[in-house]
Design a protein around this nucleic acid. Structure first.
Lengths: 148, 148
DNA sequence: TGCAAAATCACCCAAAAGGGTGACGACAAC
DNA sequence: GTTGTCGTCACCCTTTTGGGTGATTTTGCA
């Protein structure tokens, strides 16, 4: 972050210098306001694009859409709460498989990983959900709309 | 969308007008190139930012927030299937407690019976449901509408 | 009243689940 | 280059769960 501020400052100074130079340069050539303006415009347009991309890079645009449950359409996990709880995609996946009644071994087989890995994931999952048992994790996950 | 295009057009026209005005205004006042440049710079920086954000915007993540199904009155177990499977009231009660995430010990405490009793009940329950685990029993119970 | 079903409990054993720790590689971010 | 997160896996140990067997008491109903 500090480096960025420094770089911005340097670029600013450079720009001012360039501007001063062009100013003197073109002031003697008279018919230059248009060119000058275009130059500045192009320059700052580029800077603006770069700024826009840089500063807003990581913020995902989220549109909340309320939908009546009605016909129980294709379920979509409440990403709000998922990220709130810091639950990863893998953990959510495993929560779903637990909810469908699979044992750790069966989950491991289905995901092509070791049983220990499944246990690690579920451990961390229970921690994040505040659950002591898989049944409790399922219950919490359902009321929090993490799983159907 | 059409409204937005219109508004953009209007803003553009307005900007052009303003620019023209400032151009004439400042051209007579001589020392105005800096102000003019700064204005154009700020303008195009803003435009650049807008462009950067617009052109590189990710598809907005649409989160479907399901509204709790209206009413969905007090749950009533499907007695048809209960009697079909030969599930007793006590067993159904225990299935509900299992689904709510309680351990056998906690269920025993809540029902004022021994843990062994709970285990026998749940054993017979799993047998009747064809479940090997409590999570599976919960899943089966839910799809069979034995529990909410 | 007597029987069958249901509910209760105990004991043993095996399997599954869970807690804790440590480690490693991949990968993105700063 | 360093840091942090994620996913992966192993090992050890405890708790929970489930299976099997047997037994006693309650209860609903014929």
């Amino acid at each position: 972050m500090k480096r960025q501020v420094l770089i911005y400052g340097l670029i600013g100074g450079l720009l001012i210098t360039v501007l001063k130079w062009t100013e003197y340069r073109f002031l003697v050539i008279e018919h230059s306001i248009e060119i000058y303006g275009a130059l500045v415009a192009a320059l700052f347009a580029g800077l603006g694009i770069w700024l826009g991309q840089t500063l807003t890079r990581r913020k995902p645009a989220v549109i909340l859409k309320e939908v009546p449950t009605a016909a129980a359409g294709p379920f979509a996990a409440d990403e709000m709460r998922v990220s709130e709880l810091g639950i990863t995609a893998r953990e959510l996946e495993i929560l779903g498989l637990i909810a469908s009644g699979l044992s750790n071994r069966e989950i491991a087989g289905r995901l092509f990983v070791s049983e220990n890995t499944v246990k690690t994931h579920s451990s961390r999952l229970f921690d994040k959900l505040g659950a002591k048992r898989r049944t409790q994790a399922v219950q919490i996950g359902k009321t929090a709309r993490l799983i159907p």
